[in-house]
Computed example of a mutant assay.
Amino acid sequence: MTLQLERPLDATDWKILRELQRDGRLSYNELGRRVGLSGPGAAERVRKLEDAGIIRNYGAQVDPTKVGLPLQAFIQLRCAPGKCLFQSSCADEFPEMLEMHKLSGSYCALLKVAVSSMQHLEAFHDRLAAYGNHITNLVTSSVITHRVIDWESPTVKLCPPPNSRWNE
């Protein structure tokens, strides 16, 4: 599988992307030191990556649990005819939504939500029911919550299932 880009990325671009995904608050001087460029050289490269739309934004990752939203869930939504959540609603009506994705298949949307309690989740369900049927899966733990995108030299490693005989 090859990665197709409008603007090919070189090894230095990938180093910059890895560093900024790990810490978006790096100074240009520190970023340059880590990737082998001067501070102004790093700043110019970052500007080009931003202009190309490769770097879309910078922001803090907030732990929902630490701000009073300990329950997270993924909700699959099948919108009722004429009541599409994407077309008839504003995200501001659902501040619990962290992510909202259009889907193919039998459900039209996947929502990631964070709520303060089961009662809060129930109230969210009541508001969401106006748009259609849904299935909710509570998150019991999160193994990967933010992954650095690094396709400079993609290699796929298959992990054998536990207790398998792949290696025999």
Rank of each mutant, 00 (worst) to 15 (best):
4 Q>S: 08
6 E>P: 01
7 R>T: 13
9 L>S: 02
10 D>G: 11
10 D>K: 08
11 A>M: 02
11 A>G: 01
12 T>A: 04
17 L>S: 01
18 R>F: 09
19 E>L: 13
19 E>C: 12
25 R>Q: 13
29 N>Y: 09
33 R>V: 03
35 V>S: 03
39 G>N: 07
42 A>I: 09
46 V>N: 00
47 R>H: 10
48 K>W: 03
51 D>S: 12
56 R>P: 03
59 G>S: 09
59 G>D: 04
60 A>N: 11
65 T>K: 12
66 K>S: 10
72 Q>N: 07
74 F>C: 06
76 Q>R: 11
76 Q>D: 12
76 Q>H: 08
77 L>M: 07
79 C>H: 03
83 K>M: 09
86 F>H: 07
87 Q>P: 01
90 C>V: 12
91 A>Y: 12
94 F>L: 02
95 P>V: 04
96 E>T: 01
96 E>K: 00
97 M>G: 08
99 E>A: 13
101 H>P: 00
102 K>E: 12
106 S>I: 10
106 S>R: 14
107 Y>A: 14
110 L>P: 00
112 K>W: 05
112 K>H: 14
114 A>C: 14
115 V>Y: 02
117 S>H: 06
122 E>M: 06
127 R>P: 00
128 L>Y: 09
136 T>V: 05
142 S>M: 06
143 V>I: 15
148 V>K: 04
149 I>C: 07
150 D>V: 05
158 L>Q: 06
159 C>L: 14
162 P>G: 07
163 N>T: 13
163 N>C: 08
165 R>M: 08
166 W>Q: 06
168 E>V: 14
